[in-house]
Amino acid sequence: MHHFMLANLLTEPVGVAHYMAVGAVLFVCGVLCMALKRNALGVLMGIELVLNGANLNFIAFGSRFLRGEGQGLGLDGPLMALFVIVLAAAEAAVALAIVLNFYNNYDSVDIDRADQLQG
């Protein structure tokens, strides 16, 4: 690993890599939620975290403060982030609808019981 990871923290600006590191933590937390939670809503929250981690990367690459003038993605970064946010909101609504329907039919939000499609 390079020296800049922790060396001059507090006196030097952070870079894209630092944002990506935070994004990675959020992403992995989200994945873990999706994998480990039995509650369908927990899984939904995991998805939100994953999207959020990805968003952080878009922002980092688009920011002029992290990569310098003209180096980054420019406006693509924030715009992609915006689309992700908007779609995440839509996705949450749809996923919640699925969860509620599942709950209506099965009296449960335990996704381990949503196994009708397995052979």
Partner: peptide, 19 residues
Amino acid sequence: NAYIRSIGRAACNPKTDTT
């Protein structure tokens, strides 16, 4: 009611209803 709604989706699968 839930059972009626689940027929076709869940058929008569007792697994959906045993716990």
